[in-house]
């Protein structure tokens, strides 16, 4: 999915305020993969990740229905905050612990279905290993590593999503990497 520029994102944002269905479709196409990834590595379940992803988009639509004069100026921090809150609600409802077993995730599910199977299995096992280790980290470390290295957000963007100063975000990234390194096999 090619990245949209700031101008077209702003245009979509404005159109959403006026409940433009077509703009909402564009929003979905642009963010569905990112939102899915963000949720998937937090809940470690494909089905839960799919359900929550759909819920996030419906909640985003409801937000625009209720908030014409939004405090937000752009889509990304808004939709990811909604996603973050959805995951927290999910934890509360399901009472899922941080170290939920990963048997339900098959390694090939971690990779794009377009790739050939052999490569998928091989890389899947490698990815499987790191995913398991990530799940052992505390929630705030896991979240920040996902946002930084999997969703590929900048420190400034992460700061806007999790409501923490950029300096704190940098420190958290450093600590999270260090913690992951300690539990990764040599």
């Amino acid at each position: 999915m090619p990245k949209k520029n700031i101008f077209s994102e702003s245009l979509i944002f404005q159109k959403l305020k006026y409940k433009d269905k077509q703009a909402f479709g564009e929003l979905y196409d642009h963010y569905v993969d990112d939102i899915y990834r963000f949720i998937f590595f937090r809940v470690n379940s494909k089905e839960d990740a799919e359900d929550l992803t759909s819920a996030v988009f419906l909640k985003t639509w409801n937000y625009f229905l209720e908030n014409f004069h939004s405090e937000y100026n752009s889509l990304k921090p808004l939709i990811f905050k909604i996603a973050r809150n959805a995951v927290i609600d999910h934890y509360r409802q399901a009472r899922v612990k941080n170290n939920q077993p990963l048997e339900q995730i098959r390694p090939e599910e971690l990779l794009d279905e377009q790739q050939d199977l052999d490569r998928k299995i091989d890389e899947g096992f490698q990815s499987d290993q790191i995913v398991k280790k990530i799940s052992l980290l505390k929630e705030e470390f896991r979240e920040i590593l996902i946002l930084k290295y999997i969703n590929d957000f900048s420190v400034k963007e992460i700061s806007a999503i999790i409501d923490k100063p950029p300096g704190t975000v940098r420190v958290q990234i450093f600590r999270a990497l260090k913690a992951l390194k300690e539990i990764m096999p040599n």
Partner: peptide, 22 residues
């Protein structure tokens, strides 16, 4: 570690699910 984390960007939802969900 960072390289392995970045590999996880390849994770995507199922295409069929994506269309149905939309």
């Amino acid at each position: 570690i960072i390289k392995k984390l970045r590999n996880l960007r390849q994770t995507s939802p199922d295409r069929l699910w994506r269309e149905k969900s939309r």
